[in-house]
Simulated assay, not measured.
Amino acid sequence: MIQTLLESGIFSEKRILKRNEYLNTAGSIDTQIYYIENGSMRIFIMDEDEERIIRIGYSGNIVVSLDSFLSEKPSEFYIQAIKTTEIRLASKKDFYQFIQSDDENMKFWTVILEDLVLQQIEREKDLLMNSPKERFERVLKRSPKLFQEIPNKYIANYLRMSPETLSRLKKS
């Protein structure tokens, strides 16, 4: 279905972000949705002086500052390129016109939202109940490409463990 989205023409604008460049920062309103053609990005929030990565995206993924996209209010999230990243952009207006134009497109959007909710529930349970080893194994099973695309320091932050712990788990 992502291919259908790309073929629809709504992702007409392209942009290249340099390594560490911000797509958007906390306090900004962002009603765009982004498709990562190549590269990788992280979505994080600041907890006092510490970054907390909540999502990582790489080639073939869609990323969005969902709180701001849905509410059209300022987001608390930062979206930053991990390495040089080429993205395509679609406006909320164009995206909604697309999903409302056909029942299949609306079903696709519903599936995306349901999947995000289920992923978030799984992640919350993981962080509250599972050991670092269990969190590592779950993510490795679900997203093996993550370990090929993303530096360990970001994966460790996402999994709420030290880079050293992640390194030990990868070796075992």
Score class of each variant (00 low, 15 high):
Lys125Ile: 14
Ser167Trp: 04
Ile16Glu: 12
Arg138Cys: 02
Leu17Phe: 09
Thr110Leu: 11
Tyr154Ile: 04
Val111Trp: 10
Tyr78Ile: 06
Leu128Thr: 00
Lys92Leu: 03
Ile121Val: 14
Lys83Pro: 00
Tyr22Cys: 12
Asp94Ala: 14
Ser71Arg: 10
Lys92Trp: 04
Arg123Ala: 08
Lys83Gln: 15
Arg42Lys: 15
Asn24Leu: 15
Gly39Asn: 08
Val63His: 04
Arg55Thr: 09
Glu164Arg: 06
Tyr34Ala: 03
Pro74Ala: 14
Arg135Gln: 06
Ile99Leu: 11
Leu116His: 07
Tyr78Arg: 03
Thr25Val: 15
Lys153Glu: 08
Leu127Ala: 10
Ile99Met: 12
Leu5Pro: 00
Glu48His: 14
Lys83Ile: 12
Tyr34Met: 02
Glu21Asn: 07
Glu104Asp: 13
Leu169His: 00
Ser12Asp: 12
Phe77Trp: 05
Lys171His: 11
Ile36Trp: 05
Leu6Trp: 00
Asp30Tyr: 00
Lys141Asp: 05
Lys18Ala: 15
Glu72Phe: 07
Gln3Val: 09
Asp103Cys: 12
Phe95Met: 06
Phe98Asp: 05
Ile62Asn: 02
Lys93Leu: 14
Thr84Cys: 00
Ser8Gln: 01
Arg142Gln: 15
Tyr158Pro: 02
Glu137Arg: 01
Ser65Ala: 15
Ala90Asp: 04
Asn38Ala: 00
Asp67Trp: 02
Tyr35Ile: 07
Ser131Lys: 06
Trp109Ser: 12
Ser162Trp: 01
Leu128Arg: 08
Asp126Tyr: 06
Arg15Trp: 04
Ile29Ala: 12
Tyr35Thr: 03
Leu169Tyr: 02
Met1Asn: 08
Glu21Tyr: 05
Arg52Thr: 14
Ser131Leu: 03
Ile54Ala: 04
Phe44Leu: 13
Phe95Glu: 04
Pro132Glu: 02
Asn61Phe: 14
Ile82Asp: 06
Ser28Gly: 05
Ile2Asp: 12
Ala26Leu: 09
Ser65Gln: 08
Leu5Lys: 02
Lys107Ile: 15
Val111Asn: 15
Val63Lys: 06
Phe98Gly: 01
Glu37Gln: 09
Pro74His: 09
Ile16Ala: 06
Glu124Lys: 10
Arg42Cys: 07
Asn152Trp: 01
Thr4Met: 07
Lys14Asn: 14
Ser162Glu: 08
Phe108Asp: 03
Gln120Phe: 03
Arg19Gly: 08
Tyr34Gly: 01
Thr110Gly: 04
Asn105Pro: 03
Met161Arg: 01
Glu21Ser: 11
Leu70Glu: 11
Thr84Met: 07
Leu169Ala: 03
Pro144Gln: 09
Pro74Asn: 13
Lys153His: 06
Ile2Trp: 08
Glu51Leu: 10
Lys93Arg: 15
Gly27Thr: 14
Arg123Val: 06
Val64Glu: 03
Leu159Cys: 02
Ser8Phe: 01
Pro163Gly: 10
Gly27Phe: 10
Glu164Pro: 02
